[in-house]
Write a protein that binds this DNA or RNA. Structure first.
Lengths: 178, 178
DNA sequence: CTAGAATTCGAACGATGGTTCAAGTTTTGA
DNA sequence: TCAAAACTTGAACCATCGTTCGAATTCTAG
Protein backbone atom coordinates (compact mmCIF):
# COMPACT_ATOMS: atom_id res chain seq x y z
CA UNK A 1 0.00 0.00 0.00
CA UNK A 2 1.42 3.29 -1.10
CA UNK A 3 -0.26 5.21 1.68
CA UNK A 4 1.67 3.29 4.32
CA UNK A 5 4.95 4.14 2.68
CA UNK A 6 4.04 7.80 2.59
CA UNK A 7 2.89 7.73 6.20
CA UNK A 8 6.10 6.02 7.27
CA UNK A 9 8.15 8.72 5.60
CA UNK A 10 6.26 11.42 7.47
CA UNK A 11 6.50 9.51 10.76
CA UNK A 12 10.21 9.33 10.30
CA UNK A 13 10.63 12.93 9.19
CA UNK A 14 8.54 14.58 11.88
CA UNK A 15 8.16 11.96 14.56
CA UNK A 16 4.95 10.07 15.15
CA UNK A 17 3.31 12.59 17.45
CA UNK A 18 4.12 15.57 15.25
CA UNK A 19 3.03 13.89 12.03
CA UNK A 20 -0.36 15.23 11.00
CA UNK A 21 -2.99 13.57 8.89
CA UNK A 22 -2.87 16.53 6.53
CA UNK A 23 0.83 16.06 5.95
CA UNK A 24 0.45 12.31 5.48
CA UNK A 25 -2.33 12.96 2.99
CA UNK A 26 -0.20 15.40 1.05
CA UNK A 27 2.76 13.02 1.01
CA UNK A 28 0.49 10.24 -0.27
CA UNK A 29 -1.05 12.54 -2.87
CA UNK A 30 -4.66 12.60 -1.72
CA UNK A 31 -6.95 14.72 0.38
CA UNK A 32 -7.05 14.53 4.18
CA UNK A 33 -10.60 13.28 4.28
CA UNK A 34 -9.88 10.58 1.78
CA UNK A 35 -7.44 8.86 4.11
CA UNK A 36 -10.42 7.66 6.08
CA UNK A 37 -11.65 5.58 3.19
CA UNK A 38 -8.63 3.35 3.62
CA UNK A 39 -7.94 3.52 7.32
CA UNK A 40 -10.09 4.12 10.35
CA UNK A 41 -7.70 6.76 11.60
CA UNK A 42 -4.15 7.72 12.42
CA UNK A 43 -3.77 4.98 14.98
CA UNK A 44 -4.54 2.28 12.46
CA UNK A 45 -2.02 3.68 10.01
CA UNK A 46 0.64 3.61 12.67
CA UNK A 47 -0.36 0.11 13.69
CA UNK A 48 -0.07 -1.23 10.16
CA UNK A 49 3.36 0.35 9.74
CA UNK A 50 4.57 -1.27 12.91
CA UNK A 51 3.10 -4.67 12.16
CA UNK A 52 4.69 -4.73 8.75
CA UNK A 53 8.14 -4.09 10.12
CA UNK A 54 7.85 -6.41 13.06
CA UNK A 55 6.71 -9.28 10.87
CA UNK A 56 9.75 -8.78 8.72
CA UNK A 57 11.94 -9.00 11.78
CA UNK A 58 10.22 -12.15 12.97
CA UNK A 59 10.76 -13.67 9.58
CA UNK A 60 14.47 -12.97 9.88
CA UNK A 61 14.59 -14.85 13.15
CA UNK A 62 12.89 -17.86 11.57
CA UNK A 63 15.23 -17.79 8.61
CA UNK A 64 18.42 -17.73 10.66
CA UNK A 65 20.30 -21.02 10.67
CA UNK A 66 23.68 -22.20 11.88
CA UNK A 67 25.72 -21.57 15.04
CA UNK A 68 24.44 -18.97 17.48
CA UNK A 69 27.00 -16.36 16.48
CA UNK A 70 26.02 -16.68 12.86
CA UNK A 71 22.30 -16.64 13.59
CA UNK A 72 22.71 -13.56 15.74
CA UNK A 73 24.63 -11.73 13.05
CA UNK A 74 21.95 -12.56 10.51
CA UNK A 75 19.15 -11.32 12.71
CA UNK A 76 20.94 -8.11 13.60
CA UNK A 77 21.82 -7.44 10.00
CA UNK A 78 18.20 -7.94 8.96
CA UNK A 79 17.11 -5.67 11.76
CA UNK A 80 19.39 -2.89 10.60
CA UNK A 81 18.12 -3.28 7.07
CA UNK A 82 14.56 -3.03 8.34
CA UNK A 83 15.51 0.24 9.96
CA UNK A 84 17.41 1.77 7.09
CA UNK A 85 16.50 0.25 3.74
CA UNK A 86 13.00 1.44 3.32
CA UNK A 87 12.09 4.37 5.45
CA UNK A 88 9.53 2.42 7.37
CA UNK A 89 11.24 0.60 10.13
CA UNK A 90 11.82 3.45 12.47
CA UNK A 91 8.30 3.48 13.82
CA UNK A 92 8.25 -0.16 14.82
CA UNK A 93 9.99 -0.54 18.13
CA UNK A 94 10.44 3.15 18.48
CA UNK A 95 6.97 4.51 19.07
CA UNK A 96 4.77 1.80 20.51
CA UNK A 97 3.75 4.21 23.23
CA UNK A 98 1.94 6.36 20.70
CA UNK A 99 -0.69 3.70 20.13
CA UNK A 100 -3.91 3.72 22.15
CA UNK A 101 -3.94 0.95 24.77
CA UNK A 102 -6.26 -1.31 22.81
CA UNK A 103 -3.91 -1.52 19.86
CA UNK A 104 -0.77 -1.24 21.93
CA UNK A 105 -1.15 -4.40 23.96
CA UNK A 106 -0.98 -6.93 21.10
CA UNK A 107 1.80 -4.90 19.53
CA UNK A 108 3.87 -5.04 22.69
CA UNK A 109 3.28 -8.77 22.82
CA UNK A 110 4.76 -9.21 19.38
CA UNK A 111 7.65 -6.94 20.15
CA UNK A 112 8.38 -8.85 23.33
CA UNK A 113 8.18 -12.12 21.46
CA UNK A 114 10.81 -10.83 19.08
CA UNK A 115 13.04 -9.78 21.95
CA UNK A 116 12.63 -13.19 23.55
CA UNK A 117 13.58 -14.86 20.30
CA UNK A 118 16.79 -12.87 20.09
CA UNK A 119 17.53 -13.54 23.72
CA UNK A 120 17.03 -17.23 23.11
CA UNK A 121 19.79 -17.14 20.52
CA UNK A 122 22.13 -15.44 22.97
CA UNK A 123 21.23 -17.92 25.69
CA UNK A 124 21.77 -20.86 23.35
CA UNK A 125 25.20 -19.55 22.46
CA UNK A 126 26.11 -19.22 26.10
CA UNK A 127 24.89 -22.72 26.85
CA UNK A 128 27.13 -24.41 24.30
CA UNK A 129 30.16 -22.28 25.17
CA UNK A 130 30.04 -20.36 21.93
CA UNK A 131 29.69 -17.22 24.01
CA UNK A 132 31.07 -16.26 27.38
CA UNK A 133 28.72 -16.28 30.31
CA UNK A 134 26.67 -13.07 30.49
CA UNK A 135 23.32 -11.55 31.34
CA UNK A 136 21.46 -12.58 28.18
CA UNK A 137 18.56 -10.27 28.86
CA UNK A 138 20.73 -7.21 29.29
CA UNK A 139 22.98 -7.99 26.37
CA UNK A 140 19.99 -8.52 24.13
CA UNK A 141 18.59 -5.15 25.06
CA UNK A 142 21.97 -3.57 24.44
CA UNK A 143 22.09 -5.07 20.97
CA UNK A 144 18.57 -4.01 20.11
CA UNK A 145 19.28 -0.54 21.41
CA UNK A 146 22.33 -0.24 19.22
CA UNK A 147 20.52 -1.35 16.08
CA UNK A 148 17.37 0.63 16.75
CA UNK A 149 19.50 3.69 17.30
CA UNK A 150 20.73 3.57 13.73
CA UNK A 151 17.42 5.05 12.63
CA UNK A 152 18.36 8.18 14.55
CA UNK A 153 21.71 8.94 13.01
CA UNK A 154 21.60 7.29 9.60
CA UNK A 155 21.45 9.67 6.66
CA UNK A 156 20.87 8.28 3.18
CA UNK A 157 23.44 10.69 1.78
CA UNK A 158 26.03 9.72 4.40
CA UNK A 159 29.31 7.94 3.68
CA UNK A 160 28.10 4.43 4.51
CA UNK A 161 25.50 2.23 2.85
CA UNK A 162 22.98 0.36 5.05
CA UNK A 163 24.72 -2.88 4.14
CA UNK A 164 28.09 -1.75 5.43
CA UNK A 165 26.49 -0.46 8.60
CA UNK A 166 24.67 -3.74 9.11
CA UNK A 167 27.88 -5.72 8.66
CA UNK A 168 30.12 -3.68 10.91
CA UNK A 169 27.52 -3.22 13.60
CA UNK A 170 26.50 -6.86 13.87
CA UNK A 171 30.12 -7.91 13.93
CA UNK A 172 30.96 -5.58 16.79
CA UNK A 173 27.90 -6.55 18.79
CA UNK A 174 28.51 -10.29 18.49
CA UNK A 175 32.19 -9.88 19.21
CA UNK A 176 31.38 -8.62 22.69
CA UNK A 177 29.99 -12.04 23.52
CA UNK A 178 33.15 -14.04 22.78
CA UNK B 1 14.86 23.78 40.17
CA UNK B 2 11.97 21.62 41.26
CA UNK B 3 9.95 22.46 38.17
CA UNK B 4 12.53 20.89 35.89
CA UNK B 5 12.43 17.66 37.85
CA UNK B 6 8.65 17.55 37.57
CA UNK B 7 8.75 18.34 33.87
CA UNK B 8 11.31 15.63 33.30
CA UNK B 9 9.10 13.09 35.01
CA UNK B 10 6.19 14.01 32.76
CA UNK B 11 8.38 14.00 29.67
CA UNK B 12 9.48 10.55 30.57
CA UNK B 13 6.03 9.28 31.47
CA UNK B 14 4.14 10.60 28.47
CA UNK B 15 6.83 11.41 25.95
CA UNK B 16 7.89 14.94 25.13
CA UNK B 17 5.24 15.60 22.50
CA UNK B 18 2.37 14.25 24.56
CA UNK B 19 3.43 16.04 27.73
CA UNK B 20 1.14 19.00 28.30
CA UNK B 21 1.86 22.18 30.19
CA UNK B 22 -1.16 21.49 32.35
CA UNK B 23 0.19 18.12 33.40
CA UNK B 24 3.66 19.53 34.03
CA UNK B 25 2.09 22.26 36.15
CA UNK B 26 0.12 19.76 38.17
CA UNK B 27 3.17 17.56 38.70
CA UNK B 28 5.14 20.59 39.86
CA UNK B 29 2.32 21.70 42.13
CA UNK B 30 1.43 25.03 40.59
CA UNK B 31 -1.02 26.48 38.12
CA UNK B 32 -0.55 26.25 34.35
CA UNK B 33 -0.21 29.97 33.86
CA UNK B 34 2.35 30.24 36.60
CA UNK B 35 4.83 28.14 34.67
CA UNK B 36 5.37 31.12 32.43
CA UNK B 37 6.82 33.13 35.28
CA UNK B 38 9.76 30.79 35.37
CA UNK B 39 10.10 29.75 31.75
CA UNK B 40 9.22 31.35 28.48
CA UNK B 41 7.40 28.22 27.38
CA UNK B 42 7.50 24.50 26.92
CA UNK B 43 10.48 24.65 24.60
CA UNK B 44 12.62 26.35 27.18
CA UNK B 45 11.71 23.80 29.81
CA UNK B 46 12.73 21.02 27.50
CA UNK B 47 15.93 22.84 26.62
CA UNK B 48 16.96 23.26 30.25
CA UNK B 49 16.28 19.58 30.95
CA UNK B 50 18.48 18.58 28.08
CA UNK B 51 21.29 20.99 28.91
CA UNK B 52 21.41 19.79 32.48
CA UNK B 53 21.82 16.19 31.48
CA UNK B 54 24.29 16.84 28.73
CA UNK B 55 26.51 18.90 31.00
CA UNK B 56 26.60 16.04 33.43
CA UNK B 57 27.70 13.73 30.65
CA UNK B 58 30.39 16.13 29.54
CA UNK B 59 31.63 16.31 33.10
CA UNK B 60 31.96 12.53 33.15
CA UNK B 61 34.15 12.67 30.07
CA UNK B 62 36.42 15.23 31.71
CA UNK B 63 36.64 13.22 34.88
CA UNK B 64 37.61 9.97 33.19
CA UNK B 65 41.28 9.04 33.66
CA UNK B 66 43.43 6.03 32.91
CA UNK B 67 43.69 3.63 29.96
CA UNK B 68 41.12 3.94 27.18
CA UNK B 69 39.15 0.88 28.25
CA UNK B 70 38.83 2.21 31.74
CA UNK B 71 37.91 5.70 30.62
CA UNK B 72 35.27 4.30 28.30
CA UNK B 73 33.74 2.19 31.01
CA UNK B 74 33.57 5.20 33.32
CA UNK B 75 31.89 7.37 30.71
CA UNK B 76 29.37 4.72 29.79
CA UNK B 77 28.56 3.99 33.39
CA UNK B 78 27.99 7.67 34.05
CA UNK B 79 25.83 7.88 30.96
CA UNK B 80 23.63 5.05 32.16
CA UNK B 81 23.30 6.66 35.55
CA UNK B 82 22.29 9.90 33.87
CA UNK B 83 19.55 7.99 32.12
CA UNK B 84 18.26 6.00 35.07
CA UNK B 85 19.17 7.55 38.42
CA UNK B 86 17.11 10.63 38.34
CA UNK B 87 14.26 10.52 35.92
CA UNK B 88 15.65 13.33 33.85
CA UNK B 89 18.15 11.96 31.44
CA UNK B 90 15.79 10.43 28.99
CA UNK B 91 14.97 13.67 27.26
CA UNK B 92 18.54 14.60 26.55
CA UNK B 93 19.72 12.77 23.50
CA UNK B 94 16.34 11.32 22.89
CA UNK B 95 14.17 14.20 21.81
CA UNK B 96 16.32 16.93 20.36
CA UNK B 97 14.03 17.00 17.36
CA UNK B 98 11.22 18.34 19.51
CA UNK B 99 13.03 21.63 19.95
CA UNK B 100 12.37 24.53 17.58
CA UNK B 101 15.30 25.08 15.19
CA UNK B 102 16.65 28.09 17.05
CA UNK B 103 17.15 26.16 20.25
CA UNK B 104 17.94 22.91 18.54
CA UNK B 105 21.09 23.97 16.75
CA UNK B 106 23.26 24.76 19.78
CA UNK B 107 21.89 21.67 21.51
CA UNK B 108 22.92 19.47 18.64
CA UNK B 109 26.35 21.03 18.73
CA UNK B 110 26.80 20.04 22.34
CA UNK B 111 25.47 16.58 21.70
CA UNK B 112 27.83 16.14 18.81
CA UNK B 113 30.72 17.39 20.91
CA UNK B 114 29.92 14.71 23.46
CA UNK B 115 29.80 12.05 20.79
CA UNK B 116 33.15 13.24 19.42
CA UNK B 117 34.65 13.05 22.90
CA UNK B 118 33.54 9.44 23.30
CA UNK B 119 34.77 8.61 19.83
CA UNK B 120 38.13 10.14 20.69
CA UNK B 121 38.49 7.68 23.55
CA UNK B 122 37.71 4.78 21.23
CA UNK B 123 40.17 6.07 18.63
CA UNK B 124 42.86 6.54 21.26
CA UNK B 125 42.40 2.98 22.41
CA UNK B 126 42.71 1.72 18.86
CA UNK B 127 45.84 3.76 18.28
CA UNK B 128 47.76 2.27 21.20
CA UNK B 129 46.61 -1.28 20.47
CA UNK B 130 44.40 -1.40 23.53
CA UNK B 131 41.49 -2.08 21.17
CA UNK B 132 41.29 -3.95 17.89
CA UNK B 133 40.99 -1.92 14.74
CA UNK B 134 37.42 -0.83 14.06
CA UNK B 135 35.17 1.90 12.74
CA UNK B 136 35.37 4.21 15.74
CA UNK B 137 32.46 6.31 14.57
CA UNK B 138 30.11 3.40 14.12
CA UNK B 139 31.13 1.68 17.32
CA UNK B 140 30.63 4.87 19.27
CA UNK B 141 27.14 5.23 17.93
CA UNK B 142 26.41 1.61 18.77
CA UNK B 143 27.53 2.18 22.35
CA UNK B 144 25.51 5.36 22.73
CA UNK B 145 22.49 3.64 21.24
CA UNK B 146 22.76 0.81 23.70
CA UNK B 147 23.03 3.10 26.73
CA UNK B 148 20.38 5.52 25.55
CA UNK B 149 18.05 2.61 24.99
CA UNK B 150 18.12 1.77 28.69
CA UNK B 151 15.70 4.64 29.28
CA UNK B 152 13.14 2.73 27.24
CA UNK B 153 13.11 -0.53 29.08
CA UNK B 154 14.31 0.28 32.56
CA UNK B 155 11.68 0.02 35.27
CA UNK B 156 12.50 1.21 38.79
CA UNK B 157 10.69 -1.80 40.22
CA UNK B 158 12.61 -4.22 38.00
CA UNK B 159 15.08 -6.82 39.20
CA UNK B 160 18.23 -4.79 38.55
CA UNK B 161 19.47 -1.56 40.07
CA UNK B 162 20.84 1.17 37.79
CA UNK B 163 24.30 0.48 39.13
CA UNK B 164 24.24 -3.18 38.12
CA UNK B 165 22.93 -2.26 34.70
CA UNK B 166 25.66 0.34 34.27
CA UNK B 167 28.34 -2.18 35.23
CA UNK B 168 27.19 -5.05 33.08
CA UNK B 169 26.36 -2.91 30.08
CA UNK B 170 29.62 -0.98 29.99
CA UNK B 171 31.59 -4.16 30.44
CA UNK B 172 29.87 -5.83 27.48
CA UNK B 173 30.22 -2.80 25.25
CA UNK B 174 33.92 -2.35 25.92
CA UNK B 175 34.58 -6.05 25.58
CA UNK B 176 33.52 -5.89 21.94
CA UNK B 177 36.56 -3.72 21.25
CA UNK B 178 39.18 -6.15 22.48
C1' DC C 1 -25.62 4.14 -22.00
C1' DT C 2 -26.59 4.18 -17.38
C1' DA C 3 -27.31 3.20 -12.66
C1' DG C 4 -25.02 1.94 -8.69
C1' DA C 5 -20.79 1.55 -6.22
C1' DA C 6 -16.48 3.29 -5.16
C1' DT C 7 -13.64 7.09 -4.66
C1' DT C 8 -12.43 11.85 -3.78
C1' DC C 9 -12.79 16.29 -2.03
C1' DG C 10 -12.50 20.26 1.17
C1' DA C 11 -15.02 22.71 4.37
C1' DA C 12 -16.51 22.38 9.07
C1' DC C 13 -16.77 20.37 13.96
C1' DG C 14 -15.20 19.32 18.44
C1' DA C 15 -11.32 18.64 21.29
C1' DT C 16 -6.97 19.72 22.88
C1' DG C 17 -2.67 22.24 23.54
C1' DG C 18 0.37 26.21 24.27
C1' DT C 19 -0.02 30.65 25.70
C1' DT C 20 -1.79 35.21 27.45
C1' DC C 21 -3.70 38.21 30.70
C1' DA C 22 -6.10 40.92 34.11
C1' DA C 23 -6.78 40.35 38.63
C1' DG C 24 -5.80 38.64 43.16
C1' DT C 25 -2.39 37.15 46.96
C1' DT C 26 1.94 36.90 49.23
C1' DT C 27 6.51 38.44 50.13
C1' DT C 28 10.00 41.94 50.62
C1' DG C 29 12.48 45.91 52.30
C1' DA C 30 12.75 50.43 54.02
C1' DT D 1 3.45 49.73 58.51
C1' DC D 2 2.93 49.99 53.80
C1' DA D 3 3.94 50.28 49.08
C1' DA D 4 6.30 47.99 45.52
C1' DA D 5 7.80 43.71 43.71
C1' DA D 6 7.22 39.02 43.17
C1' DC D 7 4.27 35.36 42.78
C1' DT D 8 -0.02 32.91 41.71
C1' DT D 9 -4.35 31.97 39.63
C1' DG D 10 -7.92 30.27 36.38
C1' DA D 11 -10.39 31.60 32.69
C1' DA D 12 -10.08 32.70 27.93
C1' DC D 13 -7.74 32.97 23.27
C1' DC D 14 -6.02 31.13 19.19
C1' DA D 15 -3.95 27.72 16.48
C1' DT D 16 -3.84 23.06 15.26
C1' DC D 17 -5.20 18.32 15.06
C1' DG D 18 -8.01 14.18 14.21
C1' DT D 19 -12.15 13.36 12.33
C1' DT D 20 -16.80 13.74 10.00
C1' DC D 21 -19.82 14.52 6.27
C1' DG D 22 -22.57 15.75 2.30
C1' DA D 23 -21.69 16.49 -2.22
C1' DA D 24 -19.10 15.89 -6.50
C1' DT D 25 -16.51 12.91 -9.44
C1' DT D 26 -14.83 8.65 -11.36
C1' DC D 27 -15.09 3.82 -12.06
C1' DT D 28 -17.59 -0.54 -13.06
C1' DA D 29 -20.85 -3.76 -14.87
C1' DG D 30 -24.95 -5.14 -17.13
Amino acid sequence: MEILHAAARVFRRRGVAAAGMREIAEEAGLSPGNLYHYFSGKDEILLFCQERTLERMHAAVQAAKGPAAERLRMVLRAHVHCMLDELEGATAHLDVESLPPKLRAPMIDKRDAYERAVRAIVAAGVKNREFARCDASLVTRAMLGAVNWTARWYRPDGPQMPDEIADALSEYLVKGLA
